[in-house]
Design a protein around this nucleic acid. Sequence first.
DNA 1: TCTCCAGTG
DNA 2: CGTACACTGGAGA
Length: 861
Amino acid sequence: MDSTKEKNGNYKDDLLLRMGLNDNKAGMEGLDKDKINKIIMEATKGSRFYGNELKKEKQVNQRIENMMQQKAQITSQQLRKAQLQVDRYAMELEQSRDLNNTIVHIDMDAFYAAVEMRDNPELKDKPIAVGSMSMLSTSNYYARRFGVRAAMPGFIAKRLCPQLIIVPPNFDKYRAVSTEVKEILADYDPNFLAMSLDEAYLNITKHLQERQNWPEDKRKYFIKTGNPLENDKPRKEVNKLREHERSISPLLFDDSPPDLQSQGNPLQGNSEEEDNPQTLQNSIVFGTSAEEVVKEIRFRIEQKTTLTASAGIAPNTMLAKVCSDKNKPNGQYQVLPNRQAVMDFIKDLPIRKVSGIGKVTEKMLKALGIITCTELYQQRALLSLLFSETSWHHFLHISLGLGSTHLARDGERKSMSVERTFSEISKAEEQYNLCQELCSELAQDLQKEGLKGRTVTIKLKNVNFEVKTRASTVSSVVSTTEEIFAIAKELLRTEIDADFPHPLRLRLMGVRLSSFPNEEDKRHQQRSIIGFLQAGNQSQSAPGCILEKTDKDQFLKSLEMSHKKSFFDKKRSERKWSHQDTFKCEAVDKQSLQTSHSFQVLKKKMNENLETSKNSNNSQIFTCPICFREQRSISLEAFNKHVDACLDGPSISGTSNVFSHSHASSTEVNKKENVYPSFSQSEKQDYETHQRNSEINFIELPETEDNPAKAESVDALSDKHSKEECASLPSKPFNIEKCCENSSSTVSLEDIASLSQQESSQPYLQALVCPVCNLEQKTSDLTLFNVHVDVCLNKGIIQELRKDKVNLANQPRENTKSTDNSGRVQKTATKPKRPGLMTKYSASKKTKPNNSRHTLDVFFK
DNA sequence: TCTCCAGTG
DNA sequence: CGTACACTGGAGA
């Protein structure tokens, strides 16, 4: 919230960095900087938290040291060359500088605290903070005089200011107020961008144009003399009125000439003579300039909510954001839309003020003698040699005062998560329970937005504040508590086992779901259904990897458009497209790489699917893979609905074991499980080590090798399948793996479809037995079963990978290239990149021995 | 893809 | 007694 944004006063900065930039004035009440630091240190020193902070600080220092070493090796010739390149880019940027937009950043002052004070007059003249004893969201300005800030734990705030009143947050209320504010903002830019409950960007360019012709009464507002909500307390109304006079009057009437602005005049910006608001008895007319518009917005916000806002006006978002901070609280500031004004504003601006430059970046740049934007610009050549391309491009944008000039509506969300902090939990059982609870909460949240995803990540923080995340991606989307927990549980189990016999001493656990299918995925998945169903009848082959026409067109179109976009947009779409470009090829190849087995059959089938689907119409004859009835002349949507209905019906569980993901490694795992049914913990270790050293390569079960015509039990089928894949032989559709990595229903459909065409007379009435771990699964839920198989498979894959690594280690180091049968390069060596900001100079961390444990799990289920 | 880091509010 | 939570994106392995 507010005080977090006032970075100079950030509590954590003071804690370790001792920036000495705290602008906190020692007033008659409140504390001075030294006193605040002393109290914070006393409360902090010796704690596990502090220990971790020190550790992190050391890592950052190490990174800085690495960076400085790198810097020392740079020759003046390199630097000159870099200078030329950077300046060429800077020139391009300069040429594309766009000053035609008027961007406004609105920021509510101490929002949560202000709402609480408004609704409870008892709090009015007291130091308050919103949050809890363990963490504060925001504090009012009174409390800030004592050093009480956002992101500070309440118990420390209490030591700084014993009178502090800590109010628990009422998010519903803040949301309601925020909605009121947004209603006003929409009048000026219907496409405004809300960043949070208390912050938003507006592009008022269009509004300004229209406004020029507005008659006066369209810009006239009446001053409310009472708040209808509080009519029961007339005494307050008087207060309110006086307050308005206090807060609004200086703002609206003490305009300062433009030249005073850049000299840090705290008064509210400039406006031309004719723009000066005229007051009648109880109404105000606002002018037509940007400043007047923003005053009007702030006036209306205050009238409507009795809360004040600060604002920044500038030709781009980056500057507008910095501006809104300049005259906070209850003030505004404008950077005029000409290059000189922008550069004057930027000149002495500390880089830390810029959104995106945080504590660590500040410290790293400071080590290079960079504090202000001017210095950032001066060192641009050096920075281009020390940081990644994205980083130095970002720096260059900042140092030229550039930023986005349009408000990109942020796309779909990328992940959803829950996490909780608690007092130490070390018992495994409690940890599993907690994990399940979190999964349940997450599942509920997901349901609200109708989301399903493929990657589950758990986050663990131990009592020493060390954070770990562990992720697992499955081939079909999941969303229910059970599905997510099935995956999260295994991740947690792996971590618990890894530290055995020591318990995990946790203080936080979190669960996240990501890899939501995008539109592309969904379309693709639909096509593959059609393609597959058709492929059963008219078998075609189309080798090689194809990029579909529609996609190509879109790609070209996007390139065409891209010159109109900002640098960041371009980069974004390049990334997006280069990703999508390879998606179809890699969707399958990934797996074959991971397992070192050829998936030719699969790919061929998939390509067939894509090819045939290109020619497919919207309405045709389908055979439902569940009920085996022909569905004539219906749309794909209708057909899908029909299949869904069938799937939801009762007749599924009997056939569901055919959805097993036959997989090369499954055979091996099966075998291991059979051969080594149980071990003690130490035996596990020994066996594991032995495994790794001797590179045992498991081969197929003898039955399948000896007797390929073996009865078509599911497990036997998957074994045979693996074998066939190894030999790259053409195979029956039934052998098709989950080629499209999409939703479980698709996968099921494909498998069922093949079944329906080839083996429909064959009854499959076995229980659900996982083909990987060989254990019967209690659930009759298809997706859940698939999840289980995926989890088992992932373990197998990890093992396979490790095997590969050992093999690689024996060879002279070489770019990892692999080609499919068509000779196409699937994966080339990652091209060397320029050092990144984040990890390039990372303090060498000891990477944990590695996943020895993953395999064990499979053995000892 | 996985893990960690940095940053935002 | 004691330091949150939810989200995005970069980077490197």
